[in-house]
Computed example of a mutant assay.
Amino acid sequence: MKLVAVSAGLSTPSSTRLLADRLAESVRDDLGTQGHEVEVEVIELRELALAVANNLVTGFPASQLAYAIDAVTGADGVIAVTPVFTASYSGLFKSFFDLIDPAALTGKPVLVAATGGTARHSLVLEHALRPLFAYLRAAVVPTAVYVASEDWGARGDAYTDGLPARIRRAGAELAVLMAARPPAEAEAPEDEVTALERQLSDLRFD
């Protein structure tokens, strides 16, 4: 199985990336106990920021960005994590998912998560992230994970409360959906002519 985590964190190190890693680890462990082998890949959007902007203007994705889009659309499950900016997801996060075909995530298991400086922004999960992936017709797991600054140091039992319990619960839900779906089949690579035809068909004239 292929699990792809998308992290829109801008700093290094990043709490957003840390959350993505912990969620991915939870999903992999849960699937591992069911006998599934899981390949995990993390996509750092900060490394693709310029390519995302250029693609929005020109309609042509650079090779690294095209690879990231194909990784997300070809995964068996996706973890999407964004920092909160102005009470919503980051512009980079939204811009990346704007480049994905609206039908490409149909039925795909997705776990949404966010990081922020205060717990007051936790509703971003329900009023911004969940509607975004509902529009893309993804199968979003019931438990979304929001982590404020104070959550990182809070003590809590991994099975009953606190951040560890939320990560474990969300990871288990994504694992269930991934295990219930047939494995994603790898698409044959496009030749240069087919790739050019696809890019030309995607050109926008607005």
Rank of each mutant, 00 (worst) to 15 (best):
E41S: 05
S7M: 09
A158C: 01
R166Y: 05
T73E: 11
V78C: 02
V176K: 02
E37S: 15
A148W: 10
S90Y: 07
S149M: 09
V38K: 12
T33G: 04
H121I: 04
S26D: 09
Q34R: 13
V57K: 02
F85L: 11
E44S: 09
P131V: 10
R22N: 15
N54K: 12
H36Q: 14
A172F: 01
A188M: 10
E185L: 08
A80F: 09
V140S: 04
F205D: 15
F97I: 10
V72W: 03
T106D: 02
D98F: 07
A20M: 02
R130K: 08
L136T: 05
S26I: 06
G59T: 06
E197S: 09
A158E: 10
V193Y: 13
L174F: 07
V110S: 10
V110M: 07
G107A: 04
D29P: 01
F97S: 08
S122A: 14
A62C: 00
E47S: 04
S15Y: 12
E39S: 15
T118A: 04
G59M: 08
G156R: 06
T58F: 03
Y89L: 14
I100S: 02
E192T: 15
V72S: 02
V145E: 12
D191R: 13
G91M: 14
G162H: 03
P61Y: 10
S14H: 11
Y135P: 03
A104H: 00
E185V: 03
D29L: 15
H121M: 07
T86V: 05
G162R: 09
S11G: 11
E192G: 07
L31S: 07
G107I: 03
V110I: 13
T118L: 00
P83K: 04
R155H: 02
T82L: 08
Y67C: 00
L65F: 03
A165W: 04
Y135M: 13
V193F: 13
T73W: 00
A5T: 03
L177N: 04
P109R: 00
S95H: 10
A188Y: 02
V4F: 03
T143P: 06
A53Y: 08
A20T: 02
P164Q: 10
I167S: 06
L45C: 13
F60L: 09
N55R: 13
A103K: 10
D206V: 05
L123C: 06
V42S: 02
D76S: 01
A188G: 05
P61T: 05
V72E: 11
A113H: 11
F60G: 01
A49P: 08
R181S: 11
E47V: 02
H121A: 11
E190V: 13
H127W: 05
I100T: 07
A172N: 00
S14D: 15
D29Q: 15
L48R: 02
A165S: 08
M1D: 10
Y146E: 13
R28G: 07
Y146P: 14
K94N: 13
L111N: 04
A8K: 04
A51T: 04
A158D: 04
V40K: 01
V72F: 04
L19M: 12
A138D: 10
T16W: 10
T194K: 14
V40D: 01
L56M: 12
L99E: 11
L105S: 03
A103S: 09
Q199T: 14
E150R: 10
T73A: 06
N54H: 11
S90A: 14
S14V: 13
F96A: 11
L163Q: 12
S26H: 06
R28D: 01
